[in-house]
Each structure stands twice: as structure tokens, then as C-alpha cells.
């Protein structure tokens, strides 16, 4: 059963990553050099939609709170994120989109995946160092206190529950996507502008 779910959910995720352009380094590059925010809008809406559905479902009791999995916050999250950001901009791939792009026949993505295996291996060997200097210790904070979950709240005294915080942020993310300008730098060149917004 679990394997069937892995195939179904993984397959859907792969299809969606390809369909929104996330497996195309050009779209990632245009997002990161701020010349076309289309992919950023897609991501904001996706996070917002998922958040509203999940927290809404938890409030109604139809989504198992135990399925949540919150990661710990520590210095390594910020430093690792900053390291990842450099490689992301250099290559135009992140781990998930890289393997999917390789599957779609992008040859450069095969090299990204090979490099990724080296990078992950290098981290595995250097892990004791980061552990030792205390960069990996931290709590699994959520913003508000989520009913039914045991995660500590970063803001425990909020007048609303963590579920409501999640729904509020979800709505805010969708509003940001709507309000975000098509490009954040430079003047819109007519040629790029014509294909800035794919047809519906």
C-alpha cells in the first residue's frame, strides 16, 4: 500500500514539477535573477494552497495531525540554505527538480545529480565536525501552537491557534502571488514580456 502511494504521489509530484517549469533551469534562472517572477508566483500559491488545505483539514478533524513532520531549526539551516542558494543559482536545479530534469532528458541535469551524490557524500563524511561545533542542535518550532501536535511554539502567546496561523499565512501567500509584479528588475522587454505569462 505504501509503495502504491509512493508511486502515485511521486508520479503526480514529478508531473507537476515538469508542468510548472521547475525542471527547466531557464525558469529557475529567470526567477532568481528577478526578471520573471512567474515560477515564484506558482510556488507562493502552492505553499498557500497546501497550508490552507492541511490546517483546514486538521481543524475539521479529517487530516491526521500526526502526519506533520517539522524539521529542527539550527545554525546549519541558515548556513546550509545559504550554501544551497549559491549552487541553485549556478546550476538552475535543486535536488528534486534536478533528478526530474535528468529524467526528462536534460544531459546537464545528469551532471547535477552526479555532483549531488558527491556533495551529499562529502557532507556525510564532514557531519561529525558540524555536529561537534553545535551547528545542528535546535528545536522543532512551529510559529503558533498547533492543537494535537507536540511541537513547541515560537510564539506561544498568540491569541489564535497554530491552525489559524497556518491558514492566515496561506491566504497571505496567495495574495503575495497575486500582487507580485511580473518582474522585479529592469524594464520589461516586449519580447520577454509576451511570454512572461504562459497561457491559461
Amino acid at each position: 500500500m505504501e509503495i502504491a502511494l509512493a508511486i502515485g504521489l511521486g508520479g503526480l509530484f514529478g508531473i507537476m514539477l515538469e508542468r510548472i517549469g521547475a525542471t527547466d533551469p531557464n525558469w529557475i534562472g529567470r526567477m532568481l535573477n528577478l526578471t520573471n517572477t512567474h515560477l515564484m508566483k506558482t510556488i507562493f500559491v502552492a505553499i498557500g494552497t497546501a497550508s490552507i488545505l492541511m490546517f483546514g483539514g486538521q481543524m475539521l478533524g479529517v487530516v491526521e495531525v500526526g502526519h506533520m513532520s517539522v524539521k529542527a531549526i539550527h545554525v546549519g539551516v541558515l548556513l546550509g540554505g545559504a550554501i544551497l542558494g549559491i549552487g541553485w543559482a549556478i546550476s538552475g536545479y535543486c535536488p528534486g527538480t534536478g533528478v526530474c530534469a535528468a529524467a526528462t532528458g536534460r544531459l546537464d541535469a545528469l551532471f547535477f545529480v552526479a555532483g549531488g551524490l558527491i556533495g551529499a557524500g562529502a557532507y556525510a563524511l564532514s557531519y561529525p565536525f558540524w555536529e561537534e561545533i553545535g551547528f545542528l542542535n535546535g528545536e522543532k518550532w512551529t510559529i503558533g501552537e498547533i492543537p494535537g501536535a507536540s511541537y513547541p511554539a515560537a510564539l506561544p502567546d498568540l491569541p489564535i491557534t497554530g491552525d489559524m496561523v497556518g491558514i492566515g499565512i496561506g491566504i497571505a501567500f496567495i495574495l503575495i502571488a497575486i500582487l507580485l509584479p511580473r518582474r522585479l528588475v529592469g524594464k520589461a522587454a516586449p519580447v520577454t514580456d509576451a511570454k512572461a505569462e504562459p497561457a491559461e
Partner: peptide, 29 residues
């Protein structure tokens, strides 16, 4: 890029999917 991305992702404990998308949707700080 692959070397850098995966080194950073493992240090952070997740990547764009696990931290950014799944994390932010769960209001994980």
C-alpha cells in the same frame, strides 16, 4: 552546482521541497 546544493541541503536537513515547501506550509520556523 550539484555538489554545493546537496552539501548545503544535507547541512540544513532538507532542500527546497522538504524545508521550503513542506516546511513553510506547516508553519515550521
Amino acid at each position: 552546482g550539484g555538489v554545493i546544493v546537496l552539501y548545503g541541503a544535507r547541512m540544513a536537513g532538507g532542500c527546497t521541497s522538504g524545508h521550503m515547501m513542506s516546511g513553510m506550509m506547516q508553519t515550521a520556523v
